[in-house]
């Protein structure tokens, strides 16, 4: 299966789906005008991957400094897919990376963690970026 890499823009994150290392990363900002349309290739890729993957673990990193409410709904769809895999015995690790000055983002991570007990959440604090206000 091919890797899927989507480059970042001002309002969409960089997404990297790597079947060889069983790693997925979402990094940047997420507030596209049409969230469903933006994430549809990601969801399709994942469905395909999860149907065919033989690896017994999967690591997902979310390092998203801002996401709008409809993105948070898509993240929930992703977690639902991961939960189904965890129920089949796969180890799913979610690294939720947040800026130490951004309590709201930590709270978002905690709330996802509360809802998905079978996923192994790591809430990882990172130092503020040099210019936290840069767009």
């Amino acid at each position: 299966m091919e890797k899927l890499i989507i480059g970042a823009t001002n309002y969409t994150p960089e997404i990297c789906l790597d079947p060889d290392s069983s790693r997925i990363s979402v990094k940047g900002k997420s507030y596209p005008e049409n969230t469903a349309e933006f994430y549809s290739p990601v969801l399709n890729w994942l469905e395909n991957y999860l149907d065919n993957a033989h690896s017994d673990s999967l690591t997902i990193s979310f390092d998203v400094s801002y996401f709008n409410s409809s993105s948070s709904k898509v993240f929930l769809d992703l977690f639902d897919m991961f939960e189904a895999e965890a129920d089949k015995g796969k180890t799913i690790i979610v690294n939720w990376i947040y800026d130490k000055n951004d309590k709201d983002n930590l709270e978002f991570g905690e709330e996802f963690q509360e809802d998905y007990a079978t996923l192994k959440f790591n809430l990882i604090q990172k130092e503020s970026e040099e210019d936290p206000f840069a767009n």
Partner: peptide, 27 residues
Amino acid sequence: LKQKMKLEDASKSSVLRVFAMVVENAQ
């Protein structure tokens, strides 16, 4: 908006919240 609030020494969490409200309302 972020640049302006930064110059006013607003806290990072207020900047992000105000920004988020503008995004949600605009969308």
